[in-house]
Nucleic acid binder design. Structure first.
Lengths: 210, 210
DNA sequence: CATTTCACCGTCAGAGCTGACTGTGAAAGC
DNA sequence: GCTTTCACAGTCAGCTCTGACGGTGAAATG
């Protein structure tokens, strides 16, 4: 690792970090390469040297953003209030992680990717890269005892989708009527589901990513 | 209503319709006023006459889009397969309506509104306008018997959020592993919830819109 | 020390987009 | 029928964004 390589890596990192910041702060549509270069304190030449096209820059930023959201879950797990039973803790951690600005940004990108093939591809690659770690982490936050229950897969999948729904909803209705009560309700329902006999013939991990 | 008024209204409608089409087809970021005017077959002057700013054009388009999604639920209710019990029918209708391209587009806009105050305001106004009709329609698709059950509000709210989550998920993972099995599971869980004693102390319609 | 490599710089051309502006002809009003 | 209004037409200026390009100086190489 020569001094050049270090410098190169450091600059690239600064640019990517700036791009992520910009996506979070100004949104996908308003994030231009000029904005990123200014935010990173880097010349136009430097930016284009590291990321020849806007597309490549975004791919790197998206990758980083997804990573950040995985880390967020790890952090929330570490900071979870003690005394919660595994189900409540699992759902609480997922919800908390999904209220972070970076998560809202990721969902915004999911939406934007609907009609943007490049972004769509970048997102799928990034999600694919963390997929395994993500579900491993989910198993961890719910605890191993529960993760062997018959309806565990269904519970996880429903929780993931619910949390995404809540997250995008709160993008539009921020602050409004706190939707946290619904999380409590869901926790109760989740316990009910786990106590139930298997609900379907072998659901077999359909595993939606992220 | 003079001839001029008719003409005016007709042109405005064409423009709005084109704007919606364009949002659905090319996405928010790629929808320019030029694109809309071409798609509507209208001169630049005409477009700016009816919608002096891009912002106003989008507000009108967003309003129409939200309307379309309400109509979608009505249509799906009308076309629902017979023989379903109320719970299954309700969830089925919601899911179907939310798989339409216009719904994905609406969610994309929700995401984009995160960092775009103008769009955010336009969306809230539009959602507010249909909010009452929407929840009335939801009561209708589930049927009046059920809508008086103790846990009905919780069921609706959870279903709404779940369906939104599924919808945004399938923007990224289209076609992949059909997530319809999860809807079946949720239907079973929903019946379970309804059969339960009240789960909370009077949740009292928090009512998330759209 | 001489040479080469390469991370980075700053400018620029080309393109697209928005909204301002000046017509213009047909319907509406008197 | 004469004037006014107004829905609409087409052009244009000004801006921003992207990516190309020809330098430059310090680090690596020999």
């Amino acid at each position: 690792m020569t001094r050049r390589d270090e410098q190169r890596a450091a600059t690239a990192r600064r640019i990517v970090e700036a791009a992520v910041e910009c996506l979070v702060a100004k949104g996908f549509a308003a994030t231009s390469t000029v904005e990123v270069q200014n935010r990173a304190g880097v010349s136009r030449g430097a930016l284009l040297h590291h990321f020849p096209t806007r597309e490549q820059l975004f791919a790197a930023a998206v990758h980083r953003l997804v990573e950040l959201n995985l880390e967020a879950m790890r952090e929330e797990l570490a900071g979870a209030p003690p005394g919660l039973d595994p189900v409540a803790r699992g759902i609480w951690v997922m919800r908390r992680a999904s209220t972070r600005p970076t998560f809202g940004t990721e969902l915004e990108l999911w939406g934007a990717s609907r009609a943007d093939p490049n972004l769509h591809a970048a997102l799928r690659v990034a999600e694919q890269a963390v997929r395994k770690d993500l579900y491993q982490m989910i198993d961890e936050i719910f605890g191993t005892e529960i993760s062997r229950a018959a309806n565990y897969q269904v519970l996880v999948e429903l929780s993931v989708q619910l949390v995404r729904g809540l997250s995008i909803t709160s993008l539009l209705y921020r602050g409004d009527p706190g939707r946290e009560p619904l999380i409590e309700e869901w926790t109760r329902v989740a316990r009910l589901v786990l106590a139930q006999e298997p609900m379907s013939d072998q659901p077999e991990r359909p595993r939606s990513a992220s």
